[in-house]
Amino acid sequence: PVYLSVKADNSMFIGNDPVTDETMITALNALTEGKKDTTIFFRADKTVDYETLMKVMDTLHQAGYLKIGLVG
């Protein structure tokens, strides 16, 4: 499974590897070998604001990742 996490300080990680807004999709493409039907499990600290969550989800959708599971 692929886990994308947003921490309380808005830092992002794919698994244990830090990513930025600019590198997130490139890292996901490498990890999933470009398979856009891969489910991305998205988790965020409860203090992360809604705007940040939606920005990340919008970026995922624009890149073609449509299977996003929200996890606690």
Results as ranks from 00 to 15, higher is better:
1 P>F: 11
1 P>E: 09
1 P>N: 08
1 P>M: 06
2 V>G: 01
2 V>I: 14
3 Y>L: 08
3 Y>I: 13
3 Y>P: 01
3 Y>H: 08
3 Y>G: 02
4 L>V: 12
4 L>A: 02
4 L>Y: 01
4 L>F: 08
4 L>T: 01
5 S>C: 15
5 S>V: 15
6 V>L: 12
6 V>C: 03
6 V>Q: 02
6 V>F: 10
6 V>G: 01
6 V>M: 12
7 K>A: 09
7 K>G: 09
7 K>Y: 15
7 K>P: 02
7 K>Q: 09
7 K>E: 09
8 A>M: 06
8 A>R: 06
8 A>C: 10
8 A>W: 11
8 A>I: 05
8 A>K: 08
9 D>W: 06
9 D>F: 07
10 N>Q: 10
10 N>K: 14
10 N>R: 12
10 N>L: 14
10 N>M: 12
10 N>E: 06
11 S>H: 08
12 M>S: 01
12 M>Y: 14
12 M>N: 01
12 M>T: 03
12 M>R: 03
12 M>F: 06
13 F>T: 07
13 F>C: 09
13 F>N: 03
13 F>I: 04
13 F>G: 01
13 F>D: 02
14 I>S: 01
14 I>Q: 01
14 I>P: 00
14 I>D: 00
14 I>E: 00
15 G>P: 01
15 G>M: 08
16 N>W: 06
16 N>I: 07
16 N>R: 10
16 N>P: 08
17 D>R: 11
17 D>Y: 13
17 D>V: 15
17 D>T: 14
17 D>K: 13
18 P>W: 07
18 P>A: 10
18 P>Y: 09
18 P>T: 05
18 P>D: 03
19 V>P: 01
19 V>L: 03
19 V>K: 01
19 V>H: 03
20 T>H: 05
20 T>N: 10
20 T>G: 04
20 T>D: 09
20 T>P: 03
21 D>F: 15
21 D>I: 15
21 D>K: 13
21 D>P: 15
21 D>W: 15
22 E>V: 10
22 E>L: 10
22 E>I: 09
22 E>T: 10
23 T>H: 06
23 T>I: 05
23 T>N: 12
24 M>G: 00
24 M>L: 15
24 M>W: 07
25 I>E: 03
25 I>T: 03
25 I>H: 03
25 I>W: 03
26 T>G: 12
26 T>Q: 13
27 A>W: 10
27 A>F: 13
27 A>D: 04
27 A>E: 08
27 A>C: 09
27 A>Y: 13
27 A>N: 06
28 L>R: 00
28 L>W: 01
28 L>G: 01
28 L>A: 01
28 L>K: 00
29 N>Q: 08
29 N>M: 07
29 N>E: 13
29 N>R: 07
29 N>W: 06
30 A>T: 10
30 A>L: 11
30 A>M: 12
31 L>M: 08
31 L>I: 11
31 L>W: 08
31 L>D: 01
31 L>K: 10
31 L>G: 02
31 L>N: 03
32 T>Q: 02
32 T>A: 03
32 T>W: 02
33 E>D: 13
33 E>I: 06
34 G>T: 04
34 G>P: 02
34 G>V: 03
34 G>K: 04
34 G>Q: 05
34 G>A: 04
34 G>C: 07
34 G>S: 07
35 K>L: 06
35 K>M: 07
35 K>C: 07
35 K>T: 04
35 K>G: 04
36 K>G: 04
36 K>V: 07
36 K>S: 05
37 D>E: 09
37 D>A: 07
37 D>H: 08
37 D>K: 04
37 D>R: 05
37 D>W: 06
38 T>I: 13
38 T>A: 07
38 T>Y: 07
38 T>V: 14
39 T>F: 14
39 T>S: 06
40 I>L: 04
40 I>D: 00
40 I>W: 00
40 I>Q: 00
40 I>C: 01
40 I>M: 02
41 F>Q: 06
41 F>E: 10
41 F>Y: 13
41 F>L: 14
42 F>W: 03
42 F>P: 01
42 F>C: 08
42 F>A: 05
42 F>Q: 00
42 F>G: 00
42 F>L: 15
42 F>R: 00
42 F>V: 15
42 F>K: 00
43 R>A: 13
43 R>W: 15
43 R>Y: 15
43 R>N: 12
43 R>H: 15
43 R>I: 15
43 R>V: 15
43 R>M: 14
43 R>Q: 14
43 R>F: 15
44 A>R: 03
44 A>H: 14
44 A>M: 10
45 D>R: 02
45 D>I: 02
45 D>F: 03
45 D>P: 05
45 D>K: 02
46 K>Y: 11
46 K>H: 12
46 K>M: 11
46 K>P: 15
46 K>D: 13
47 T>N: 15
47 T>M: 13
47 T>D: 15
48 V>D: 03
48 V>G: 03
48 V>K: 02
48 V>R: 02
48 V>S: 04
48 V>P: 02
49 D>L: 11
49 D>Y: 06
49 D>C: 10
49 D>G: 13
49 D>T: 14
50 Y>A: 11
50 Y>W: 13
50 Y>L: 12
50 Y>I: 13
51 E>P: 07
51 E>S: 12
51 E>H: 12
52 T>S: 07
52 T>Q: 09
52 T>G: 04
53 L>M: 08
53 L>K: 06
53 L>N: 02
53 L>F: 10
53 L>H: 03
53 L>C: 10
53 L>R: 08
53 L>D: 00
53 L>P: 00
54 M>V: 11
54 M>D: 05
54 M>Q: 13
54 M>C: 11
55 K>C: 05
55 K>I: 06
55 K>W: 12
55 K>M: 08
55 K>L: 08
55 K>D: 04
56 V>T: 05
56 V>N: 02
56 V>A: 04
57 M>Q: 04
57 M>A: 05
57 M>L: 13
58 D>Y: 12
58 D>F: 11
58 D>I: 11
58 D>A: 14
58 D>P: 01
59 T>F: 09
59 T>L: 15
59 T>S: 11
59 T>G: 05
59 T>A: 13
59 T>K: 15
59 T>Q: 12
59 T>V: 13
60 L>R: 00
60 L>M: 04
60 L>V: 04
60 L>S: 00
61 H>N: 10
61 H>M: 13
61 H>T: 11
61 H>I: 13
61 H>C: 09
62 Q>M: 12
62 Q>F: 07
62 Q>N: 12
63 A>Q: 04
63 A>K: 02
63 A>C: 02
63 A>R: 02
63 A>H: 09
64 G>S: 02
64 G>R: 02
64 G>P: 00
64 G>V: 00
64 G>M: 02
64 G>L: 02
64 G>N: 02
64 G>F: 01
64 G>T: 00
64 G>W: 01
64 G>Y: 02
65 Y>H: 01
65 Y>Q: 00
65 Y>S: 00
65 Y>G: 00
66 L>T: 14
66 L>Q: 09
66 L>G: 06
66 L>S: 10
66 L>K: 10
67 K>Q: 10
67 K>F: 11
67 K>A: 07
67 K>R: 11
68 I>C: 05
68 I>Y: 04
68 I>T: 05
68 I>D: 02
68 I>N: 02
68 I>L: 06
69 G>I: 15
69 G>S: 15
69 G>P: 04
69 G>Q: 15
70 L>F: 14
70 L>H: 07
70 L>Q: 06
70 L>G: 07
70 L>V: 10
71 V>S: 10
71 V>F: 08
71 V>A: 11
71 V>I: 14
71 V>C: 14
72 G>Y: 08
72 G>N: 11
72 G>A: 11
72 G>S: 12
72 G>T: 12
72 G>D: 11
72 G>R: 11
